[in-house]
Structures are given as C-alpha cells and as structure tokens.
Write a protein that binds this DNA or RNA. Sequence first.
DNA 1: CAGGATCCCGCTAGATACTG
DNA 2: CAGTATCTAGCGGGATCCTG
Lengths: 146, 146
Amino acid sequence: MPTLTAAQKRAQARSDYDAFLAGCPSRRLLDRISDKWVALILAALGGDGPHPGRDGVGEPRAMRYSELSRRLAGVSQKMLTQTLRSLERDGLVTRTVTPTVPVTVTYELTDLGLSLHDLMRGIKEWAEAHMDEVLDNREEYDGRVG
Amino acid sequence: MPTLTAAQKRAQARSDYDAFLAGCPSRRLLDRISDKWVALILAALGGDGPHPGRDGVGEPRAMRYSELSRRLAGVSQKMLTQTLRSLERDGLVTRTVTPTVPVTVTYELTDLGLSLHDLMRGIKEWAEAHMDEVLDNREEYDGRVG
DNA sequence: CAGGATCCCGCTAGATACTG
DNA sequence: CAGTATCTAGCGGGATCCTG
C-alpha cells in the first residue's frame, strides 16, 4: 500500500471538513475558537494591545498566569484556566511550569496558535475600530424599529 | 469650535476602545461577533463554501431565510432569526422584504459586514484546515495527561 | 415562507472557599 | 502564585405551537 505523508493526509482530509455541516468536527472547533476569551488570550499572548511608544503592536511573548489575569480585565479564574487548558489541549499554547517557590507558570503561543492569532487579532481590532459605526447603526435601527 | 469630520471623530474614538477592558463597549461587540452562527452566516452570505467547480470561493450574494437555514445545517429558527436581527441592528447585513405571496425575505452583507467577513472567513477556513492537527494534539494531550 | 411567542431544560459563567 | 473544587443562579438555546 502507498504511504501517505502527514501533509498529504492533511490535504486529503481538509476537503472533507465543512463547518457548514452540523456533524463535522470543524463545526465544534469553530465554536471553540469563536469565543471572546480565546480571542483575548491569543491577542494578549500575541503581544497585542497598547505598548508605550509602539502603537499597539508587539511581539509574541510568554506570559504568566497572573499577568494574563490582569490583562484580561474581568475574567474569572475559572474561565481563564478553563480556556487556557482547552487551548493547550488543542495545541495552540504551551504551558510551562518552573519549579520556583511559589511556582511559576507561563503560557506561550505555539506556531499553530500564532497562525490563528494572526486571524483573531484582526477580529479584536475590527471590533475596536468599528465600534462607533456599529453604535450609530444600533441607534438608527432602534429609532426606526424600536 | 472646530468641526470634526466623521472620520476624524472615529479615529479619535478608536484609540479609546480597548477590548481588554471589561467595561469597554468593544468587549461586548467582540463577544457578539465571536459566535459560530455569526461566523457561519457571514461565511454563507460572503459566498463561501463548496461551489461546484469553484474551489470554495464565491461572490457575496443575497440569500433567502430558508436558503440560509438549509446552508447552516442544524441551526434553529430562533438562533438564525436572533443572530440575523443582531447583525441587522449592528449594520452588518440588510434585510429586504419583497411583498410577494408568500413574502420573500433576503439578507445581504453591507460594506461593514463584508469587511468583517473578510476576517471571519479566515477563521472558518482555519478550523477546517487545521482540524487534523488539532485532533492529533488532543489525542497526544489526553494520552499524556489522561 | 419567514418568522413571533412560549415553555423549559441544561450547561456554563461567576462567586466563593480551599490548597500545593 | 496558580490553580482545584463546589455550588448556584441565570440564560443560551432547542422544541413546539402559532401567524401574516
């Protein structure tokens, strides 16, 4: 039997995935990554956000748990831990434990996570950039319909 | 007093929005658009998905309610209607009622919606393209952690 | 055809308390 | 510091019935 490389098998399988189909695994994956905490965690680890003198763009970097917790204002420990675990399981972030005392845990994007971040960053920035336009649209809609 | 153009006001306001902040409106907007139904509706209206002989890329087009309902396999009327209303209110899609009998309703992307679609399409395609990789990662993680 | 209105269940986010 | 464990209220979301 002919041996397929991983890349070949992936190319083969890719055409079989369609998120429009209810039963397709990619539908569930899409659901997982369509999450505000995922978007914000990837953005944080990807180095987004206001940096002094650097106009909101930074390098991907490792961040500690508490650092993330502070950055994602309002996130509960539960959601942060839970989302990080899910991302780790899917291979989007790595979790590194350094046996200091107290223990130090850092999270970092994998290459796979970085590839998603490049897309997700756009979403977050879109939301911030078009906020006013959306607000205007809502006002107009509510006045027209409401 | 100096008059600001809409573009200037938007540029001014943009720097005030930060989805990392819990109270920022853009956080809620990010939450709204981080939704699998939003991703799939935009993808559908943007002309994504398998087209006979066209390798999954199509033109943006108007779609009827029932058409969308069929395309997004497994979506309930409630979620479809609800999501479409939200998108309409935010100015991402237009809703056009044609007084035939029975009535015909079509949805179409606005320019704003189209701009988001360009980003969202990437997410859906990412999920489909990297499904196998993620599946492998999960298997490895589950075996390692158990 | 394209929804509106209701009922209701399940899961999940959030708060709280505890720990290595 | 970086979580785990537990509990609960709330609502997301599906099912169902109805209508212009």
